[in-house]
Design a protein around this nucleic acid. Structure first.
Lengths: 247, 247
DNA sequence: TGTCATCAGCTTATAGGACAAGTTGGACAT
DNA sequence: ATGTCCAACTTGTCCTATAAGCTGATGACA
């Protein structure tokens, strides 16, 4: 799996613009910055003790996430949070856990709509090479049931392989965009060892439907897999809410 | 509708980095840049006669579209085109029309999967304010059937309003990301005046199901609307292909 | 001859200063 | 009260310089 952003244990040092963007976003989320008025390049540069180049790139990052609008002459404005790019790995990292929890539910709803159909589409056109890679993924998952962190990577790659087999760049891109949230989601659903065994069984069922080139079978198997995940997610959400009430 | 990127007739002058990024992308697509080796900041700066700051921002834009990878010390590399962000308005603009045509088909497939369910979800929880805005949209569409360009904006806003009513930030974001492609798609499906009348009728049916808070009715109405669009898209694709063969 | 450490030369990351170009709001004249 | 114009502020672009990080080639050593 290509990760690119983070290595296993060594904490990757992010560039200054990314760090400053994280600070600013947190400040915006917390409501510290009122009425959509974001700090200018100079203000950022002075406040964080960075050069104007860095301040500038910071704003460009926030603009690329649709968090702010930037235009020459006008000062930077904060956009309504409904328009932010909640699929971006960066933004997700900067959000408070309550919001991420809600997003996970919403992500799951999206997966329920898309993934069964992706599996069906894949079943109709899957190649032998893809099947071989899926087979290999299954073997690795079976071997990694004791290591949730390694497991979720193979898990994710398994789903992405199916997505690619469906041969639709738009849907592929959507699922790819959701990789960060997907990983967060799997971190929850793949917590218990029993859940991992169940997941491998689910994946095997999906794989067999693909081998049989059976679209409706693949759709059903994927639906079942997602339903299982849903149960796990709901349980976790209950726990989190109870913990929040106690506080 | 908020457009922000482009005004009606005055051709908005893009910033230098955006222009250079467009040039570079076209060059990459055409295969002029072999084996993933992108030009460095200095090379861009010399070749296009821009400062290094601009060259740098150019690469940052391409990186944000997952077209290239940028890291300190290493030279910039072009990523496989399967990983590019085909939902980005910028990238779509820079792609050749054949590819955009294919993407439109794939986009439609996505809409078929998502929009009927979004309509159903919206029917379950739609507010009176949203219904009022939809009603207003219908009236404007009825009045704009002679002006396809103005019509498609209201059309798009109508669909986005339903999406927002479904109350799922992830799905909302996905549909919002597709706005540029969606506009391109509507430019085709809303070509003929008869198609506009049909679209208004379809939209009215959807609206009425929402007023009735009838999820399955809304789902069915949206399905029907998309099926109509699909016919129009397929016809257009046929024409384009025939034209390509004649050439 | 093969292996490995080192380093020169490339790349991007950051800094500071300067000017151009566009926007906004207030001062000023009518 | 109103409309014009300008000054101040903001982003866009340029230049130059230095720090930090990677890559490949060179050369020492086994």
């Amino acid at each position: 799996m290509q990760r690119g952003q983070e290595s296993s244990d060594a904490v990757k040092v992010r560039t200054l613009p990314v760090q400053v963007a994280a600070h600013l976003t947190r400040r915006i989320v917390s409501g510290e910055i009122e009425d959509g008025r974001a700090p200018s390049e100079l203000e950022i540069s002075r406040e964080f003790g960075v050069s104007r180049v860095v301040a500038r790139e910071t704003l460009k990052i926030l603009a690329s996430l649709d968090i702010v609008d930037v235009a020459q002459g006008r000062r930077v404005t904060v956009r309504p949070c409904a328009e932010w790019d909640y699929l971006s790995p960066l933004l997700i990292e900067w959000l408070p856990t309550e919001i991420v929890g809600e997003l996970l539910q919403e992500l799951h709803q999206m997966r329920v709509l898309l993934e069964p159909e992706l599996a069906a589409m894949a079943a109709a056109s899957v190649t032998d090479e893809t099947l071989a890679r899926l087979r290999e993924g299954l073997d690795r998952m079976a071997a990694l049931e004791g290591d949730p962190n390694a497991y979720l990577e193979v898990d994710h790659e398994f789903h992405m392989e199916i997505c690619r087999a469906a041969d639709n760049r738009i849907l592929d891109r959507i699922m790819y965009s959701a990789r960060w949230l997907g990983t967060a989601s799997r971190r929850i659903t793949n917590e218990a060892p029993a859940a991992l065994r169940k997941a491998t069984a689910d994946h095997t069922e999906i794989y067999e439907a693909l081998v049989a080139r059976d679209p409706s079978g693949a759709r059903a198997a994927m639906r079942k897999h997602l339903a299982n995940n849903s149960t796990l997610l709901a349980e976790k959400e209950q726990q989190t809410k109870r913990a929040a009430r106690r506080r």
